[in-house]
Structures are given as C-alpha cells and as structure tokens.
C-alpha cells in the first residue's frame, strides 16, 4: 500500500521535559500510542495495545515510529555548537495534512500577507530567485541563497534587514530552516518544524529552535515563534483540498515555489503519500 513508506519514519510524539510516568495518550498515523518515562528516566513509547515501539530522545523531543526505521533521526550539527540556546516552543494541533504544514514552513512568498510587519511587508513582496536541489547523498531537499526583506526578522534583530535563509527537508514531515543570525552574522539560527501525523488531515506540530541569542528571555523566544506559527494555522486549516496534491493540475506553482515543487517531487518519488492525494481532481 502506497502509504506504508511513511510508517518506517521517525516522528515527534512529545516534549521530553514534559513526559511523565503516567502515560500521555496520542497517535501516529491513526494508531493510538502512549508516551511515558520509566523509572530509569528513559522514554517509553507503546501502542495502546501494549506493543513496545522504538523510541529516541533528540532535539528536546521524544521520537517514535510504528514501523521499522532503517536509519537514525537526521542530524543537525549546528545543534551541538556551544553557546546555542534550545527552545521547546510547545505543541500546536492543526486540522490539516502534515505535508501541508511542512510545505507552508518552506514558503516565503506569504510573509508580507500572513506575517505582516514581522517577517515581511508590502510592497517588499518580490521573491528573488534561489537555488533548490534534491541532494542525492543525504536524500534531502535543500533550498539555498533564499533572501527576503523583513521588518523584524527575529527577536534579536533591532530593525529591518534582508534575511538570508536555507531550507532543508530531511524527513517527510520535518523541516529545518537556517536563517541569518543577527548577533553572529557568520552563523545560522536554526528553527525546525517537527510534525507528528495523527491522521491524514490532522497533525500535532512541534516547533523547536537552536539559537545564538543571549539577550532575549526564553518566554519571549517561545512567544515569538508561537506568534508566527499561529498566524499560519488559519491558512493551513482552509486549504482545499485537505490532502496535498502531488500531481500537477490542481495547483499552480511559480518560480517562487521552487522549494515546494521539489518537496512534492521528492515525496512522490519516495511514495511518502500519507496526507497526500495522487490523482488530480
């Protein structure tokens, strides 16, 4: 069955700092699961029926799979740099396809309209050309040399700047964004979206960050990222069709959408179709 390809992937299922000895009930691709912490402090993930699932703790979250992952969770080397602050932004549930959630995260043309006066503003709406590739060795989608003018790009920015970005998709429902870091211009701030597919049209989104910012309070960092994501949520819940179309015809991309085009192509190539639809209607 086409959707099985995504069963063998790792997905976030909880914040490690919040896991308790009593089970937290959630789901992965329709399968009810439970997340708890054992007496030894290790995370335990089981199906509701009691089958123990593989689990990992990475990037502040508990990860699991209802299938049989063939590789470890993707790496983010920047997360190991000394001086980084890690921000657990907290879960937000969205009634949308997990794939739509990722695709929205990859998009910049919406900044002036959806994140008005924060990540973008009219009339600075032009999206200049950038580079996109599917890297064969890592088997990941990468967009580089992405630029956009922003009135207030980060909590650590003091005014408008042209922000540079790189986008990366290392797993079907995860994306990593690298953006200009105002306090350390030679480094990238890392912002991630880890998406837990509950059903094909329902997901729990777990944003996470690894930043160089010694000034801003943790709560302010959390609130800034939650603001951005909440502004996207009402878009995500109102896209038709709910499932992400992987065949051309239903939706029309332009040159600004190269990352999303590559993402859809990469999903189709791998049969990552949970949350997608294949036949143009």
């Amino acid at each position: 069955m086409a959707k099985e390809a995504m069963l063998d992937e790792w997905y976030p299922v909880g914040l490690f700092s919040q896991v308790k000895t009593t089970a937290y009930k959630t789901a992965l691709m329709g399968e009810p699961i439970e997340v708890s912490v054992g007496a030894d402090g290790n995370a335990i993930v089981t199906t509701s029926g009691g089958r123990v699932l593989s689990s990992r703790v990475r990037y502040g979250h508990v990860w699991s799979s209802i299938g049989d992952p063939q590789k470890e969770i993707f790496s983010i080397p920047e997360a190991d740099q000394p001086g980084r602050r890690f921000v657990d932004v907290g879960v937000v549930r969205v009634r949308c396809s997990p794939l739509r959630a990722v695709e929205n995260f990859l998009d910049i043309a919406h900044f002036p309209f959806v994140h008005t006066d924060i990540l973008g503003a009219e009339p600075h709406t032009e999206v200049q050309n950038y580079k996109v590739e599917i890297r064969d060795v890592e088997d990941e989608v990468w967009a580089t040399q992405v630029k956009f003018y922003q009135p207030q790009a980060a909590k650590s920015a003091s005014g408008g700047i042209t922000t540079e970005y790189m986008y990366r998709v290392p797993a079907p429902t995860c994306s990593v964004l690298y953006k200009t870091c105002p306090p350390r211009p030679s480094e990238w701030d890392v912002i991630t979206l880890f998406v837990q597919p509950l059903a094909e049209d329902l997901c729990d989104v777990w944003p996470w960050m690894a930043l160089f910012d010694d000034e801003t309070s943790m709560t302010d960092l959390i609130h800034f990222q939650q603001t951005i994501f909440l502004q996207d949520r009402s878009i995500l819940e109102n896209q038709i069709p709910r499932l992400l179309p992987l065949d051309p015809g239903m939706e029309i991309p332009t040159r600004a959408d190269l990352t999303s085009v590559a993402y859809r192509r990469w999903l189709k190539r791998h049969n990552y179709t949970y949350g997608a639809q294949l036949v143009a209607q």
Binding site: D107, A109, P112, F113, E126, V127, I235, T254, R255, A256
Partner: peptide
Amino acid sequence: CIYHGWSYTQTGNCLRIPAHP
C-alpha cells in the same frame, strides 16, 4: 488571496502575483 496576495478580477483572471511584480 490572503495567502500570497494573488489578485483576481471580477471575470476571474489573475491580474497580479506579488512574488513576481
């Protein structure tokens, strides 16, 4: 459209795509 600002006329034609002015 609220998402990317694509503008349409009353007869349905797309007049403007803000990402590509």
